[in-house]
Write a protein that binds this DNA or RNA. Structure first.
Lengths: 230, 230
DNA sequence: TAAAGTATAATTGTCGACAATCTGCTTATT
DNA sequence: AATAAGCAGATTGTCGACAATTATACTTTA
């Protein structure tokens, strides 16, 4: 079930391990965004052959974490504001739809599990402090559960397999400790309620607003920064 | 511009050429859906080394045309009804959003170009005959233009780079010569009008209905088939 | 001095071979 | 007879080397 998550999947081959190692290095910014990737360099660093490294690079390309040009090489994607906003647009569309489908397809057990998770969050010290409600990872994450709940393999692949890491990369590198913590918690509650009521239409609208609110929050911040520097 | 289309991109390296060759073979059903891929076999067939073939296979995996398991091998994805419906759900969400963004971001020139294209279609013999309005490819395609018009690189990548080929594969292998030809044409007209009016909200709704109508059309067909066999 | 051309160095693409793993069949055991 | 263990055969993963292409630095020329 949750093993569909590439992040949690066990690394069975050397290329796998190196893939995850580089993945984390990029997401955490240890390999700078926008920097060029040296195949001989990285291969030496991880003590593997170039073939194996290239296998790992291919997977990173699948996650849109690096970009390759023929006969030129690979670069880590760079984190631009425009890129971030583009991702939010995609998420609004896809997670909105995932939420609609989740309201239709989730089993009662899955819904109960999600409600339990939310109850735990309500007590969590982090939430009380109003910090870092966004920081959980993997299958602890609310959005994650909703996406899996859609039972749509295409949606799961795109959102959990590809965009997930990009989103984390942006969050970490832009230092987004959401100030919307308590607000987000309430929105999550309402979304779960809609799913529980099997109201797909409402569930989608609420999820879209939830994500759009985050996006607007970022746009506002950017606007403030821009007006301050002028 | 249209060079962002991986289908039209020029193949510069051998792996590229083989990638496109196998891509077409799979989409056209010359390599059967669901069949296992033999690396030694295909390498011999295309007269290349296994390394080069694996490079090509990696790209096919990016398009979700094949699936790989570690130490086991690759299989061509199989075309199931569920899979097809899943794709329609994703398309409804993403192309709907792309249409909204297109209404915001397309230049006047781009819109004029799209209107010209539609006018051409209106005269086309194919349309008069009520056949095959869906069969055009590449940047002739209406949906394609809308997606590019969103100016959102993420949307373009996912829809044109990944899903595009899968959709074509399903269309060809399920033999979908849409009987909705004239109807689809009218719907396209209305969508372009909404974009022309810069009405993103309406444009999204119309596109979603347009795609949902196709999906329901398929569901109906399936239901008929099932009731006939019982 | 700036621009263009050339040669050298470095990087990427491709190849064939070996090691590790899986598949299917035979054989042995209860 | 059914299940488990073990053994070929084939397939995938990994490696190091060579070929093709690109980037860099230097020289030449206007």
């Amino acid at each position: 079930m949750a093993l569909d998550n590439p992040t949690l999947q066990k690394a069975v081959t050397t290329a796998d391990k190196v893939f995850y190692a580089i993945l984390h290095a990029i997401v955490d910014g240890k390999i700078a965004a926008g920097s060029k990737i040296s195949e001989p360099g990285l291969a030496k660093q991880y003590e593997i052959s170039r073939s194996t490294l290239r296998e790992a690079l291919n997977r990173l390309e699948k996650c849109h974490l690096i970009e390759r040009k023929a006969n030129v090489g690979s670069r880590v994607v760079d984190c631009t504001i425009e890129g971030l906003l583009e991702i939010y647009v995609v998420r609004e569309a896809l997670e909105g739809m995932a939420c609609r489908e989740a309201a239709i397809n989730m089993s009662d057990d899955e819904i109960a599990e999600m409600q339990d998770m939310l109850a735990q969050h309500a007590n969590a010290q982090d939430l009380i402090d109003g910090v870092a409600y966004y920081q959980e990872e993997g299958d602890l994450d609310f959005h994650y559960k909703v996406i899996l709940g859609s039972h749509n393999q295409q949606l799961i692949n795109i959102l959990c397999g590809q965009l997930y890491h990009l989103v984390r990369m942006y969050r970490i590198q832009f230092g987004m400790h959401s100030p919307r913590a308590t607000r987000a918690f309430e929105e999550h509650s309402n979304i779960i309620q809609a799913i529980c009521d099997r109201d797909g239409e409402l569930a989608e609208i609420l999820m879209r607003r939830h994500i759009a609110a985050s996006r607007k929050n970022i746009e506002k911040k950017i606007a403030l920064q821009n007006s301050a520097t002028q």
